[in-house]
Design a binder for these strands. Sequence first.
DNA 1: CAAGTGACTTGTAAAATGCAAGCTACTTGT
DNA 2: ACAAGTAGCTTGCATTTTACAAGTCACTTG
Lengths: 128, 128
Amino acid sequence: MKKSSTEISIPDDHRSACPVACVLDIVGDKWTLIVVRDLFLGKHRFGEFQASPEAMPTNILAGRLKRLEAAGLIKKEFYQDNPPRAEYFLTSQGAALGPILIAMREWAERYIPGVVLVANIPSPEIRD
Amino acid sequence: MKKSSTEISIPDDHRSACPVACVLDIVGDKWTLIVVRDLFLGKHRFGEFQASPEAMPTNILAGRLKRLEAAGLIKKEFYQDNPPRAEYFLTSQGAALGPILIAMREWAERYIPGVVLVANIPSPEIRD
DNA sequence: CAAGTGACTTGTAAAATGCAAGCTACTTGT
DNA sequence: ACAAGTAGCTTGCATTTTACAAGTCACTTG
């Protein structure tokens, strides 16, 4: 039997209706937020992400960029056709993850000795 | 050759000195923050975590509780010896993850349709 | 005293990750 | 002009992590 259209949905992509769980379904892994962080730091190209100190494997990077785009958090823009070369930008929805990164940074600065505090993070370029 | 003791360390557990990466090294997966959320919601026992709507596998739950304890984010307290039965509490360090959860909740409420907003989250019981 | 409960552990299959290599279409040096 | 890069990926395969089911242990309750 089909669900009535008045029912609140959520499912299909998410384990539960909990906001924390839903966010973790999207960015809950070791790499996704590293890419988002790099976008906040002004990086836009595959090679720039790859060159970050965490040395993300290229197949995982490619996969994460696709997932982030599919989720509407980033936008891919081609700046040349042949060979195809693209740059990635945060959408406003993606940029709205900023407070999560800030909260992580503040926790780390307080509880993990030796983290390097990046002085001022430029406000990211948004493309919707 | 040994490193001089004046060198800034970080390594060994962390991919880089970036605060975001360091936090992700600790809580960067699908389940860890679900446990932390439950602790914020006043849950303390294995069975209570297990009963959450996300239905976390028991072996993973057991593993995450150990890791969180080893990282100093939670404390395990036995309330009976035989059979051994324990309750888990956030330490002040663990409770300091609160702002990260809040930021996730706020993002989800804005961008994911249908998430259920938990009205008021009680301030958690801390054990250091 | 049989059945149940809480808190786990173990086994095994499925999925995600990590590493190295390969590929394509330019671009640059000599 | 021809070899050697460079950027941005994809593919294959070994290793690791996760998921699901089942089992264990020591009580507790009917």
